[in-house]
Amino acid sequence: MALITAKDLSVGYGGQTVAEHLNFKVNSGDYLCIVGENGSGKSTLVKTLVKLIKPVAGEVKYGDGLMPGEIGYLPQHTVVQRDFPASVKEIVLSGCQSRMGLRPFYNSEEKKLAADNMEKMGITDLSNKCYRELSGGQQQRVLLARALCATKKMLILDEPVSGLDPKVTAEMYELVAKLNKEGITIVMISHDIKSAVEYADHILHIGNTIYFGSKNEYLNSKAGKIFMMMQSKDPHVGNR
C-alpha cells in the first residue's frame, strides 16, 4: 500500500475550497514534486497532508505504517520571533518530540539522532549558535535537520529553497536527493520546474489544470508543456 493516498481530495480553509478533486499516491521511496502557480493551493495541500488543517472533502489515507505525526515537515514560512533564544541543538532536538510522547526528557538515542542529523546537514559546528544569528541557508538546514528527526520515512518540504542563492539552492537539492537515495520519501513543493524535473520522479501539478503522473509522462503532457514554456519565458517565476 502507498504511504499516502489522496482520494478526490479538496483542500481549503473554513469550508472554502482552494484546490479540489485531487487524486494521487505517494509510494515509499518516491520523490514527488508539487508544482503550480502562486495561490493554487500547494501549501494548503501539504498542510492538509500533515494534518494542520482538515480536508474540505474527500480523504487522505496513510498506509505502510505511516502515522501523520511521523512526517517530517518543513513549513514554507517559519516565523521565529525576533530575539527568540534558541540554539541550533535545541531546535533540532525538538524534532524528536513526536518520538518522545509524554516522556519528559530526550533519551540518548534521540540525542544521537539529533547529532547525526546535524552532521548530515553539515551544521554540527553551529550547534550552540543562536538560530536567529544564522544565514537563511543555515536556518533552512537547521529546520531540515529538525524535520529529519521527526521522521524515519517521509519528508514534506514546502519550498525549501525560496530565498536561497543559486549555489546554496543547488546544495539543498543535492542534500534532498541524497536523503531520497537513502530511502526517505520526499514530497517537495517547488517553483523551480527545471530542478523539479531533474530530481523528482513524480509530478503533481495543481491549478487550472490538474495533473499527476511520472515525470516523463508530465513532460509530454499538455499541462507540462504549457508550464515549462511559461517558466522558460519568465525567469522570475522560479525565484520570487
Partner: peptide, 9 residues
Amino acid sequence: FDETFAKSA
C-alpha cells in the same frame, strides 16, 4: 518556538 511544526509532529 514553533507551534505549526509541533502540531504537524
